[in-house]
Amino acid sequence: MEIGLNHYLVLSTILFAIGLVGVMRRKNLLMLFFATEILLNSVNISFAAISHYYGDLTGQMFAFFVIAIAASEVAVGLGLLIVWHKKHNNIDLDSMSTMRG
């Protein structure tokens, strides 16, 4: 049985759906970050698969830049999270509703 582009795209969709569920149902901000990483990784899989099946390197380039952005997002996000935790002693999403209209 031949593994085609559709197989990889369906796998990427499943992983993206898992990440989306995680983003929506998590209350703890650290767990929210984990779900974001899952979203970025599922997109990377489809980039690499398209790059392979169309014989084009652009997909891999985009995957590299996605990885770079994910790394810097983690650095800044964790710094902000540590500052928030020092100030309020919790990292629950519900405690951050001070800007609610």
Partner: peptide, 26 residues
């Protein structure tokens, strides 16, 4: 998956950056 797809360098970067740097940071 990256190794199966022939993107060897991307697979190595994935292991180094995610399992090495990001997970250690978390």
């Amino acid at each position: 998956f990256f190794f199966i797809l022939g993107a060897d360098f991307l697979g190595a970067v994935q292991i180094v950056v995610y399992s090495g740097a990001v997970m250690a940071l978390y």
